Simulated scan of single mutants.
Amino acid sequence: MIGVCNHKPEHLKALLDRTDVVPVVNQVELHPYFTQRDVREANARHGIVTQSWSPIGRLDSYKR
């Protein structure tokens, strides 16, 4: 089993085109101000778990 970090849909496609190994997890920055819908949808299509880092965002992410 492998996991990847910060793989966008085009990165996943390149990986899956070159190998038979499908990552079990893709860790990406994900929070209310950065939802990365395309990444989450690509992960779901391939059965890859999306794991977020910075789930509450950075302090400079918040609108005042």
Rank of each mutant, 00 (worst) to 15 (best):
W53E: 01
V39C: 11
L30P: 07
S52P: 15
G47M: 07
S54W: 10
H7E: 10
A44Y: 09
L12E: 14
G3N: 09
V4E: 07
A44T: 14
L30I: 02
P55L: 14
N26D: 15
V22R: 14
E10S: 14
Y62D: 05
I56W: 10
H46W: 13
V24E: 13
Y33R: 07
W53M: 05
V49E: 06
P23D: 03
V28D: 00
D17S: 15
S61Q: 09
L59F: 12
H7L: 08
R45E: 15
I2P: 10
G47P: 00
L59Q: 14
R37D: 15
V4P: 08
V24Q: 11
L15T: 02
D60H: 07
V39N: 11
R40C: 14
P32S: 02
V22S: 07
E10C: 06
Y33V: 01
R64L: 08
V25R: 00
H11Q: 05
A14V: 04
V21T: 12
W53T: 01
D38Y: 04
A14N: 12
R18K: 12
G3F: 11
H7K: 04
R45N: 11
V39R: 09
Q27P: 01
I48G: 06
T19V: 02
A44S: 15
P9A: 03
L30Q: 07
L12C: 10
S52K: 02
H31N: 11
E41L: 14
E29C: 00
E10V: 10
C5W: 03
Y33T: 01
H46S: 08
W53A: 02
Q36A: 10
T50M: 01
V22K: 15
L15H: 09
Y33F: 15
K8A: 14
H7N: 07
G57K: 02
R18S: 14
E10M: 08
P23T: 04
G57I: 01
A44N: 13
S54T: 11
T50E: 04
K63C: 05
E41A: 15
R40V: 13
V4R: 00
T19I: 02
V49L: 13
T35F: 02
G57Q: 02
V22A: 06
M1P: 00
K13P: 11
D38I: 04
Y33D: 01
N6Q: 03
T19H: 09
P55M: 13
K8D: 08
K8Q: 14
E41H: 09
M1Q: 10
S61A: 12
K8H: 12
N26P: 12
S52D: 05
P9Q: 05
V4Y: 03
R64I: 04
H31M: 04
S61M: 06
A44E: 15
G3S: 14
H31R: 04
L59Y: 11
F34S: 05
I48L: 07
G47R: 09
G47K: 09
N6E: 09
R45I: 02
N26C: 10
T19Y: 07
W53F: 15
T19P: 00
L12F: 09
P55W: 13
H31Q: 02
Y62M: 03
